[in-house]
Amino acid sequence: MDRRELADFLRSRRERITPAEVGLPAGRRRRTPGLRREEVARLAFISPEYYSRLEQARGPRPSREVLAGLARALRLSDAERVHLHQLAGAPPTPPPGPPREVRPSILDLIERLPLSAAFVTAADYEVLAWNDLAAALMEDFSAVPRGERNLLRRAFLGSLYGVSDRAEFERSSTRQLRAVVARYPNDPEVRALVDDLHRGSERFRALWASHDVASSPTLRKTFHHPLVGPVTVNCDALDVADRDQRVVIYTAVPGSASEEALRLLSVVGTQQLGDAHV
């Protein structure tokens, strides 16, 4: 525990927050910017005396419950929350399972990508968000239950077909899943996914038994679309590190027949696709 750095950090975060931001009256006499110590203590549900001792670098090590209260009261960002825990000598515990809430800025990003099929996956390959062109090229994910939006389930147990790299996807995703299990060993959804794949797929069992964890990215693939025919796209994936998520973007070579196919799909959407799948 670095008491001096913790004290300075708490003071700096307290001084940047105005009373109005947390629903408190400003009052007339405030000798320092931001909140008062007793106001932070009240918002964090701890005693003013204890909080004052923390800012004076003479308090005992705060518990995780106290740190959570301080992070909430001081409106800390994810990075600031991690820093607070580290200063207190209590690194934050990892989330029990893969985060599944997509940041609004990422949702806005995939909607703004021109002529690009883009979607967001959780660490365990659940499709969390997608734009209209991804739905038209791959499948209308909104039309299927959440449990069926997992690309691993589609590959090994369901209807992931019509794409050129299915075998390579099965290999690389199995390797990635083994790393996910190591990161989230107690998550029931991840465990249920692995169990279901073991029970339902001989190929998954063989790939899982290899214990491989390294994988190489797929840079290009071809979708055999029932409406517009073959669509060859470049594949790029952007990691959202703080959420353990991935933004996958499919684009076609400018001026190619595949770009024209994507342009047509962007107009047609999912209206005439029937039971089209990846």
Results as ranks from 00 to 15, higher is better:
Ser258Thr: 09
Asp242Glu: 15
Arg61Ser: 14
Asp242Ser: 08
Glu101Asn: 03
Val190Asp: 02
Phe9Asn: 02
Leu43Arg: 10
Val247Glu: 12
Val278Glu: 03
Val248His: 08
Leu219Met: 07
Phe119His: 13
Pro60Leu: 00
Arg154Met: 08
Glu111Pro: 06
Arg53Gly: 05
Val120Lys: 07
Leu109Arg: 01
Ala90Met: 11
Thr32Gln: 06
Phe45Ala: 14
Ala155Asn: 07
Gln271His: 11
Arg263Met: 12
Arg28Cys: 06
Ala26Thr: 15
Leu6Lys: 12
Leu54Trp: 02
Leu133Cys: 09
Ser164Pro: 00
Leu128Gln: 08
His225Ser: 02
Arg36Val: 06
Val267Ser: 07
Pro48Val: 11
Ala118Arg: 06
Arg13Glu: 01
Arg36Gly: 04
Phe9Ala: 04
Pro145Ala: 03
Leu227Ser: 12
Gly200Trp: 06
Ala143Ser: 13
Pro185Lys: 07
Ser105Tyr: 05
Ser77Trp: 10
Arg29Gln: 13
Phe45His: 13
Ala206Trp: 04
Ser164Tyr: 00
Pro230Thr: 02
Arg146Ser: 09
Ala41Leu: 10
Asp212Tyr: 11
Gln245Met: 11
Glu39Thr: 00
Arg203Gln: 07
Asp275His: 10
Glu80Arg: 14
Ala73Glu: 11
Phe223Asp: 00
Ala136Asn: 06
Phe223Thr: 00
Glu65Trp: 01
Ser258Gln: 11
Gly27Gln: 09
Glu168Thr: 08
Glu49Asp: 15
Arg263Asp: 13
Glu65Arg: 10
Ser210Val: 12
Asp78Cys: 07
Arg61Met: 10
Met138Leu: 12
Ile249Val: 15
Arg154Trp: 01
Ala123Gln: 08
Ala261Cys: 11
Ala7Gln: 04
Arg263Ala: 15
Ala167Trp: 00
Phe204Arg: 05
Ala237Arg: 03
Gly269His: 08
Pro114His: 05
Ala214Glu: 15
Asp140Val: 03
Gly255Ile: 13
Ser266Lys: 02
Arg36Leu: 10
Leu265Trp: 03
Leu177Val: 12
Leu6Tyr: 11
Arg37Thr: 01
Pro95Met: 01
Pro60Ser: 06
Thr251Gly: 07
Leu238Gly: 12
Ser201Gly: 05
Pro95Leu: 11
Arg112His: 10
Val233Gln: 04
His277Gln: 06
Glu202Cys: 01
Val180Asn: 06
Ala136His: 07
Pro91Ala: 00
Arg183Thr: 09
Gly34Tyr: 02
Leu177Ala: 09
Pro114Lys: 05
Arg42Lys: 09
Arg42Trp: 07
Leu157Gln: 06
Gly147Thr: 12
Pro226Gln: 14
Ser116Ala: 15
Ala241Trp: 01
Gly269Val: 04
Gly23Glu: 10
Gly162Ile: 03
Leu227Val: 14
Ala182Leu: 09
Glu189Ala: 14
Arg246Glu: 11
Glu260Phe: 00
Ser105Cys: 02
Asp244Leu: 02
Ala118Phe: 10
Phe9Leu: 05
Leu115Gly: 09
Asn186Met: 05
Thr251Lys: 13
Pro91Asp: 00
Pro145His: 05
Val40Lys: 03
Asp124Phe: 01
Gly69Met: 06
Leu207Trp: 08
Leu70Ala: 06
Pro91Phe: 00
Asp236Lys: 01
Gly59Asp: 02
Leu107Ile: 11
Arg243Ile: 03
Arg199Asp: 15
Ala134Ile: 06
Arg4Pro: 03
Arg103Asp: 07
Ala209Glu: 14
Glu55Val: 04
Gly34Pro: 08
Ala68Pro: 01
Asn186Gln: 13
Pro92Arg: 00
Val66Gln: 04
Ser63Gly: 08
Pro19Cys: 03
Pro145Tyr: 03
